[in-house]
Amino acid sequence: MNYNWNWWIFFEPSLDGTNTYLTTLFWGLGWTIATALCAFAIALVLGSVVGVGRTAPSPWMQRSATTFVEIFRNIPLLVQMFLWYFVLPEILPRDAGMWMKQLPNAQFYTAVICLGCYHAARVAEVVRAGLESLSKGQKMAGQALGLTLPQTYAYVLLPMAYRIVVPAITSEFLSCTKNTSVALAIGLMELTGAARAMQENSFQIFEAFTAATTLYLALNLVIVFAMRAVEGLAVVPGYGNRRNAVKGR
């Protein structure tokens, strides 16, 4: 076969006429980062609420939290993406559905919400594991001091649990960054999508995917280094060995 290598392709203008292919790839990287950050913010907040719900004494809260986790963990991400993007607007009232469809950057919002919920389920499991790894005495001590249960969670249990699960949260964030690529199926021009578009329009398959691969590796390294610093700050003195007890995917 005859493949025409052309590494200069990156500096040629892409189809929009103004940006080079390299610029479109960096735009893709930008969308990847933006989507991952926004989605993960949702995941952290929602995941904490659900995680707390799973350890709460009320059976009603436990059951709804468990249902949330089971639903978002047991349906493939791509299927969830389609449900949010194609199915949700159809079951809403017509006007609300039309409004959703005609939002500018609808793909971005859909991807953020979808990834947010998907990772919230995983963060919830991590938070729960963190809470459960604390000794019972902590909760009792908090309540013995006259704190209410919500106060005990807010001031005693959660601050401790968060510091323990930082490594697991890191790996969750890494996987969230990678999962943004699934959004190309609904038309989000994130990094993989940008590389695919470059391949389709310039026919330089290997150059396009090599560039995307390099950018993902670089992004990964940056995140790992940044999070390592956070992990260093978060270590609970004297709690070292128990950290390993909590593992998340």
């Binding site: 006429g17 389709e200 329009n201």
Partner: peptide, 15 residues
């Protein structure tokens, strides 16, 4: 995706 129309539309869009 990957068709000549992408180019046609982009050209009109920019012009």
């Amino acid at each position: 995706a990957g068709t000549t129309s992408v180019k046609v539309i982009n050209a009109a869009n920019t012009a």
